[in-house]
Every structure is written in structure tokens, then in C-alpha cells.
Amino acid sequence: MDLQEILTLNVYVVLMAFARVGAAFAFMPGIGARTVPARARLIFAFWVAVVISPLAGPLFPPQPADAPSLLLFIGYEVTVGLFFGLFGQVMMAGLQTAGSIIAYLSSMANAFTADPLSGAQSAVTGNFLMQVGLVLLFATGMDHLMIQAVFESYSLFPPGGVLPVGDMSEFFANALNDSFIIAAQLSAPFLIVAICLQIALGLLNKLMPQLPVFFVAMPIQIALALLLLTLALPSMMMVYLGYFENGLEAFLNP
């Protein structure tokens, strides 16, 4: 794209594309993190909007003559972008939920660290899984797939159309359900080991009531959880990457 093409761009089309892309990038995993400066995020979203505007331009309705109609179109685009960005956050929340379950099962529920992505305090295992998952998303090119999914969303949500509130609500509810399912799947090995350990500790407590089972079990639980996390982490991340990719494919054209 040379300078002449940039100067002849339709400002209305770029504004409409920026409304959707900017809203999506505000919550998109990695790009929408709190550690990313807002100015850098907006500049990146603007240039993505400039790049996709020639392709998405024919899909936009003619520029409305009055301001209320223009604001209505912009609100539609912002809503669709927020829907896509929050969907990415829901998929990332599966890792945080799995880490919280692992923390509770391994006696590390009180070990909190600050999440650099959201700034909130959460379990150390959840933050670890989030960091590993985010690095793998960018290392495997999933960030390009997210940007492509934002562009492909124009075929699912044509600009100027009627917002399918019912379908969006159902899709978001299913996404929340799938997020909890993937969290349960990722933490399933730890749940099985924790159940077996609790049964063994219960039998030990019956055989030796004077033994302080709680103080004896805590180091064992932490050691087993760290060992199992070391062994199962590659498989967990492969399962999660497949889940994330399948989720983005819902926005891509077949």
C-alpha cells in the first residue's frame, strides 16, 4: 500500500473497521493485556483497520446522512468487536480455572501472585498456566488466527445488519460451558491423584489417629502436584491449543 492509496482511503470505512477491530483488541488475549500500553494497542488496531478496510469496504452500507444512524452503526461494530474479544477472554479463562482447581487440590490455594495480564491476585498455578498458554499462542501463530477471525467476522456479522442477540447469547453461554469443560479436562489427572491420596490419608488416619495427617500430607501433596505438573504440562498445552483453535474456527469461513 503506497501513499496514494492511503490518502484515498475512505475515512468512513476506516472508522467503522477501527470500531470493530479496536473493541476486539481491547480484550483480545495478549494484545488486550494491561501490560500493553493503550496507545500501542490503539495504533496497532488502527493499522489493522487500515489494512482490512479495502477488503471490508464493499460490505459496509453507504455512509448515513445523519449522526444518530452513524452512531448506531458504530455501536453495532463496537458490540461485535467486544463480543469477539470477550470470547477470547473466556477461552483463556479455562487455563485460569484449571490452575485454580490444581491449586486447591495441591494445598497451594493460598499461594497468590499478581497476574501481569489482568492485574488481579490469583493462584500461582493459574498464573503459570496462563503465561505458558499465552506464550504458546504467540509462538504457534494463533495471534495471526485471531486477527484473521476478526476479519472473517464480517461474513458472520455484516455491517449495518441486525444484531443477533439471541444467537450471541447462546454462543457465549456455550463458550462458558466449554471453558469449564476444558478446565476440568486439564485438571483431571490432578483430581485423580488427589482422590487417591485423600483415600490413603484417610486410611492412615484410621490406623494412626495420633498422627498429624494434615502436616504430613501437605508437603506430599505439593510435591506430587509439582511432579505431575512437570509430566503433564506438554499434553495439557496440546489439548488447550486444540481447544483454542477450534474455538476460533467458529469465526472462519469453511
Rank of each mutant, 00 (worst) to 15 (best):
L7F: 14
L7V: 14
L9V: 10
F18H: 09
A26Y: 07
M28Q: 12
I31Q: 12
G32M: 09
A33K: 00
R34M: 15
V36K: 01
A40R: 10
R41S: 01
F44L: 15
S53W: 00
G57W: 00
Q63W: 06
A65H: 03
D66G: 03
P68C: 06
S69E: 13
G75D: 06
E77D: 09
V78Y: 01
L82R: 00
L82Q: 02
L86H: 06
F87W: 06
V90C: 07
M92E: 10
G99W: 00
S100C: 04
A103V: 01
L105M: 13
F112G: 07
T113V: 15
P116Q: 03
P116H: 06
A120G: 12
V124F: 03
L129F: 10
V135T: 13
V135A: 15
T140G: 06
D143Y: 02
S155F: 11
G161N: 08
G161F: 03
A175R: 12
A175L: 13
A175D: 04
D178H: 12
S179N: 07
F180H: 08
I182C: 06
A183F: 09
A184L: 15
Q185I: 11
L186H: 04
A188M: 14
A188K: 15
L191N: 04
L191A: 13
V193G: 07
L201A: 15
L203P: 00
K206A: 15
M208C: 09
L211M: 11
P212W: 10
F215L: 14
A225L: 07
A225Y: 01
L226E: 06
L228A: 09
L233K: 06
P234W: 01
M237F: 05
L241T: 00
G242E: 02
Y243H: 12
N246A: 12
L252F: 04
L252K: 08
N253T: 15
